[in-house]
């Protein structure tokens, strides 16, 4: 199947704007509707448009899986870090009275967003590679 030139150029223009919107949704997760999962899905749709741009190889699959595994371990470590500071697991590691409490939410949202995006991109890339042969 040969993609048309109009579709390819429109996707090429839209690609950075969808990326910026996805990162905005992820970073502003604690102020406006959205969060890690929604922003990650929007980032995955941004990489989905590269399928219409006639790129030879969409992404490196092993690299994506490695990113997803490492980021999942980082999320677990951040969630367990409150065992040292507070003495209980799976809550914020900052104390209740401090002013810097949104930092915890921003970091967790960021890691969850990148993890979800790499997972969905690897699902799409597997399907495309499977369809080629």
């Amino acid at each position: 199947m040969k993609p048309s030139h109009i579709l390819a150029s429109v996707c090429r223009v839209l690609f950075p704007f969808i990326l910026i919107f996805g990162f905005y949704i992820i970073i502003h997760g604690h102020l406006s509707p959205g969060g890690g999962f929604q922003g990650g899905a929007i980032l995955a749709t941004a990489f989905l448009t590269t399928y219409f741009m006639n790129f030879k190889k969409i992404t490196d699959l092993n690299f994506l899986i490695k990113i997803e595994k490492i980021f999942f371990l980082i999320i677990l470590l951040i969630a367990m870090f409150s065992l040292i500071t507070k003495g209980e697991v799976f809550t914020s590691f900052l104390s209740t009275n401090s002013e810097l409490k949104p930092i915890f939410l921003i970091t967790l949202n960021f890691f969850i967003g990148i993890k979800v995006a790499s997972g969905l991109i690897s699902i799409i890339a597997t399907f495309i590679e499977e369809g080629r042969n």
């Binding site: 969060g35 949104p102 939410l105 967790l108």
Partner: peptide, 15 residues
């Protein structure tokens, strides 16, 4: 007061 997030959904599912 507890989590510092203005979005209730994020406050609940991340804290």
């Amino acid at each position: 007061k507890h989590t510092g997030s203005k979005n209730l959904v994020t406050g609940i599912y991340l804290d």
